[in-house]
């Protein structure tokens, strides 16, 4: 545990020095500031932010995670020549990436919000939900990126796969499910739709936030079904549990592969 912390500490210092992360922080700062400044209504700001969070965070986590892993190849080889367990190193590296990305995201959106947004209970809840989804998505997609990097030694190939991974979950998955739904229009689709949402972390995060934002649209008949599921504590717990599973699954697989990998 102590070694993990040490690795995280070192890695964080390393990551924080990179221009990427500063650009990422500035991006969120400027975006949120601009939105609060010019979009007017706070709920519209959160809607726009949500779109960015659901698209940009997985994309950056995916790409940055893979790049980072490939670029640290010498570092990994060097570290493993020391008496350090592979799992410790892997965990430490992954955590430092996920934490540093999350921290810049949180700072980037919170500072403008506290300066310009209306801080009230309703807003704060939606905002916290947005921030939490952002953090969870960072952890999910960086662990997926590590898995991709571990399984592919070729840099270009791994990079391409992690981009495809992002494209699949951000766009293609929804398309497939939507067209399946339209084809099976005559059947009751609420439960399959719910399961489909849990199968895609971006969708789970989106629906969780939507239930706070577009509540009036979702209160239609089908909406009521989703509201019942995601609106009560059990549904939220299941959704969060599935998101955590989405973090754990790629991480554990990646770790296992990394342990047996011939570097």
């Amino acid at each position: 545990m102590e070694t993990i912390l040490k690795i995280i500490k070192y890695q964080l210092r390393d990551v924080l020095r990179s221009k990427w992360l500063i650009a990422y922080l500035l991006f969120f700062l400027l975006l949120t500031y601009g939105l609060f400044r010019f979009a007017g209504d706070d709920s519209r700001v959160i809607i726009s932010l949500m779109n960015v969070v659901l698209i940009i965070i997985p994309l950056v986590s995916c790409i940055y995670g893979t790049i980072y892993f490939y670029n640290s190849k010498e570092f990994i080889l060097f570290m493993l020549s020391q008496p350090i367990e592979r799992s410790t190193l892997y965990t430490g590296m992954w955590l430092s990436i996920a934490i540093s990305l999350s921290v810049s995201f949180i700072i980037g959106i919170t500072v403008p919000y506290l300066l310009l947004g209306q801080v009230n209970v309703q807003n704060l809840y939606t905002f916290a939900l947005l921030a939490a989804s952002g953090i969870l998505l960072t952890f999910i997609f960086s662990s997926a990126a590590f898995l991709v990097a571990v399984t592919n030694s070729d840099k270009a190939r791994g990079f391409g796969i992690s981009l495809l991974l992002w494209l699949f979950y951000a766009v293609v998955f929804d398309g497939i499910i939507l067209f399946t739904m339209i084809s099976f229009n005559d059947y009751p689709l609420e439960t399959p739709a719910l399961i489909a949402t849990l199968l895609n972390p971006i969708d789970s995060a989106r629906v969780l936030i939507l239930l706070k934002l577009d509540i009036s649209a979702l209160m239609g008949y089908t909406g009521a079904v989703f509201q019942k599921f995601f609106g009560n504590m059990l549904g939220i717990l299941i959704a969060i549990f599935s998101l955590i599973l989405w973090i754990a699954l790629p991480f554990v697989t990646g770790l296992k592969l990394f342990k047996g990998k011939d570097l």
């Binding site: 949500m50 609420e190 577009d214």
Partner: peptide, 10 residues
């Protein structure tokens, strides 16, 4: 049921 894709990028 497609309402669940509200505000999806697709």
């Amino acid at each position: 049921t497609a309402l669940i894709f509200l505000r999806s990028l697709f």
